[in-house]
Design a binder for these strands. Structure first.
Lengths: 209, 209, 209, 209
DNA sequence: GATGAATGAGGATTCATTCAT
DNA sequence: AATGAATGAATCCTCATTCAT
């Protein structure tokens, strides 16, 4: 059910474990993933895994931490008051997630099972993420015709278009017979995001973007 | 961890089981839900549950079946060549899901764990759903400036704005301190959808909406 | 390592489990006893055991509870201000423990590992036991030449002569090649206790015994 | 759960290990003690421990050996035909055990779990100990009114009053709110032993005390 | 002598499921 | 239709021990 992954050859043991865990947690969720499978995929005995991580839960959090850090950094540096919702930011996020779609699935799993043992992580990660995003949005030029209480909805829309998109990319791709992760598809999604942004927030309808 | 739900008092035993299962599957996913907890929440002994459903898997599918039928029907009757992506359809879906947000979470769980023992269900439910929606979209008047290969992206966007929205409503509501399920919030979301639709697909840029 | 015990045939399942557990806990202590061995000795699958007791710890406490109750009752009814430390009490305790020497070992295990997860039980059982015993002792006629702060030492002496004796009976019996549990040996120990009591607390040195 | 003990600073590594092991074995018994905890308490990695002792079992036996030697020597040199059961012997044992109460607990653990992998040790240590003690007792002057088959019972009594006393000192002290290990308490126990001996074996009933 | 990493065996416990009542 | 009791398989994790460094 889980054979040693080829990509993680030269890396350190903890990294191999994190890779294996990330893939399986993303695919099956926390409860659906057996420690034994993570171990097998890392080429280890399950017991060895506990030399590197204290528990399944701790491993899960390490996976999340490692995955979230770059996203956090992208959000951090992107507090610039540029173009509408910061097309550069959207582009970078899209690029990053297209490279590690597991991450998007992990985050969506988190969001779905919210109430449980991970709500703290949501508080720790998602909330500041939204705080920053809100701040960025408010600096955006043309918010004219959105009500203040529609802002969170706009934000969620972007959340869906980025995280939701890549979280469902693989599954939906299979069902629809498409590939949402090819470089071309990623370019298309980036272009799509720009177009959507232009229409939702963008330049005055009479002028150019 | 799971006490008998008050709302399902007068209903039949299978319905009480389905209610309990729906809530727990939505909250914790398939793997994260224990049959014993479903039984407890239904006021039953775990063994009794097997008088009504053949297995956990069968119960899960029954939950999905029961939940999906009304959605399927909404989609069915809404193949009318009306206004942009059929605002009435969007409104009905929104209304329905706001009443049973569990369903939205279930569907998103399905979408996330795609590969597994549920892919068949995705094929059975999601694919026709998308087929219908695509058909509906293509009948929409102003698709002028969207490329053909952007259509699935538009579709996904609507999927997110409907299913993703209500799937994350509870969790995100907690984190952001908002209530996305109040009647008022549902009205706002419906209005928001209309606005988004108007901008994405709607009225000629020179005319009115 | 543990074959179904013959003595516990007709009894109820929980009782069979308690019997098995008592024997093994007495022999090997809490940490040294495997749930699997208790199950085997009860003629059960380890999982079945959890239909009757919540955990190993809970089972252990049930064993202790069941074993302590009769002792507690003996102590209860023996608050009579009779002869020196109530020879009848000593006799009854001796008789009882000689019939279930496991109990004595269990109590000594408890006393030895004191600090741990069982200290609460010690507080619950041993302390009142000592309180009662102290009260009884103080009513004893000839305490003349014992200092007040020697009372606990006298108490401990009796604790040893009763509980310690039967706790070590089997092991020491093997080493010394004697049988401390035969009816005759029990009578001898009872006589011995009376003699010791006579000398330690008993009758005036000049008068009768 | 086990932090490096302060007292064993300057000592050699094997001694530090023996100290840690003695404390933990005394507290939790053999089965209840994890090699890892011994290592931690010795300030070592579990693996390092195996540079000094072949196995957990070997370490346990080394602890017992080290602890028993002085007792053995005390018993050895005390075969003198002095006063009733050799008050000096009792005093020395009491003094020694009050200084290392762990030892008393260890011995009682041994006595309790008799049947197992330690019975050989009992044979090796306890039996000669009793042999010597018996010899010593028989040289005692006033055994007049004890039957020959009561001798082992007298012996056990002394065993309890010495080993049992210090084995339970800490635990019982906590429950009763007393300190049985303070110098004063040790003096009191010594005095108590003398008094008991006087009454059980001592001076002619008609003469002086 | 010390250690980080590895492991097979076994630890307690939970799981979904069955069956006699 | 309901349940208490039973169970094999699997759960996460700890154990004592080994070995290359």
């Amino acid at each position: 059910m889980a054979s040693p992954s080829p990509q993680s050859e030269g890396s350190s043991t903890p990294e191999r474990i994190l890779d294996a865990a990330e893939a399986l947690f993303a695919e099956r969720g926390f409860a659906g993933t057996a420690v034994r499978d993570i171990a097998t995929r890392s080429g280890l005995n399950p017991a060895s895994l506990y030399n590197h991580f204290e528990s399944k839960q701790a491993l899960y959090e390490a996976v999340l931490e490692r995955g979230m850090r770059p996203i956090y950094e992208i959000l951090d540096q992107a507090a610039s008051p540029d173009d509408p919702p910061d097309l550069r930011l959207l582009g970078e996020l899209t690029a990053h997630l297209s490279r590690s779609p597991n991450l998007a699935r992990l985050i969506q799993h988190e969001a779905l099972t919210g109430g449980g043992h991970v709500l703290e992580l949501m508080r720790r990660w998602l909330q500041p993420m939204y705080a920053r995003a809100t701040a960025a949005l408010e600096l955006s030029p043309k918010l004219g015709d959105w009500e203040r209480d529609e802002l969170p909805l706009l934000l969620m829309t972007y959340h869906h278009l980025i995280f939701g998109h890549f979280a469902m990319a693989e599954a939906l791709g299979q069902v629809l017979g498409l590939d949402f992760l090819s470089p071309e598809a990623v370019r298309r999604q980036t272009r799509f995001l720009a177009k959507v942004t232009e229409r939702l927030l963008g330049a005055d309808r009479s002028g150019e973007s």
